[in-house]
């Protein structure tokens, strides 16, 4: 380091250094105003700052991870209002919704029971082999029927309308608690037909669920929206 003043930086170099300083949090007040304004107006400059953030983040790998105490997570949950009454706390929140559908189930079950009683004459008359599930929303405004014969699956919207810009995704839930497998999207009109994906088997205890998803279905391959109906596939 010398005390002589080196030649001044070029405007290009000034930009680069300012971007680095923004990413490092080294910016003095006078430069900060300039920098923040640039971020909003100048995409190329914003990209430079991101490049520095990306570049420097590698330094964090030099640190040894330190497990935070358990109370930290508890306080985060409290702050976000994720803490429930003590009784429901027993349920491990890391368990997926498909493994603890009882809360949802109880609401659906009552409606389902009523629907089954009302539909019994119809069902008896149709004499369908295989398995069936009736998926009814808690408020009973939406109903989707699913039928599995061999490896053929048919899903049909019976009541209600899929909202514009949304899709209802059909999930196949194995009884072993493994992650739900998508069967596709409910058709707005007519049946949706598909075959069971490899790795799935029609065994006792299989359930079908419906989730509300962005148009085209879940972008992540897992249910991202609310699951509004879940029902067991039972021998028809």
């Amino acid at each position: 380091m010398s005390d002589e003043l080196p030649p001044p930086l070029t405007p290009e170099e000034e930009d680069e250094v300012l971007a680095a300083e923004m990413a490092l949090g080294l910016v003095s007040d006078e430069d900060a105003q300039r920098g923040v304004a640039r971020l909003a107006e100048d995409p190329a400059f914003a990209q430079r700052v991101r490049d520095w953030q990306e570049r420097l983040a590698g330094l964090a790998d030099e640190l040894t991870p330190v497990m935070p105490p358990a109370r930290a997570r508890q306080r985060i949950r409290e702050d976000l209002g994720h803490v429930h009454a003590p009784l429901s706390e027993v349920i491990d929140s890391r368990i997926g919704w498909w493994q603890r559908p009882w809360a949802l189930f109880s609401g659906v079950a009552a409606v389902l029971a009523l629907a089954l009683v009302l539909l019994m004459p119809v069902l008896n008359g149709r004499d369908l082999p295989g398995y069936r599930a009736e998926l009814v929303s808690a408020d009973a405004t939406m109903r989707v029927d699913a039928r599995v014969e061999g490896r053929e699956v048919e899903v049909m919207l019976m009541d209600g309308t899929v909202p514009e810009g949304r899709d209802w995704q059909v999930w196949f839930l194995m009884p072993d608690g493994s992650a739900p497998i998508s069967l596709g999207l409910v058709a707005r009109e007519g049946p949706m037909r598909t075959t069971l994906p490899s790795g799935t088997d029609m065994v006792e205890g299989v359930r079908i669920a419906l989730s509300d998803e962005p148009a085209g279905g879940s972008p992540t391959g897992r249910a991202t929206g609310p699951v509004f109906a879940i029902a067991p596939l039972t021998p028809a």
Partner: peptide, 12 residues
């Protein structure tokens, strides 16, 4: 010193 958060969320 400007808040470091200023550079936090820049949409790309």
């Amino acid at each position: 010193f400007a808040p470091a958060e200023a550079a936090a969320v820049v949409p790309s």
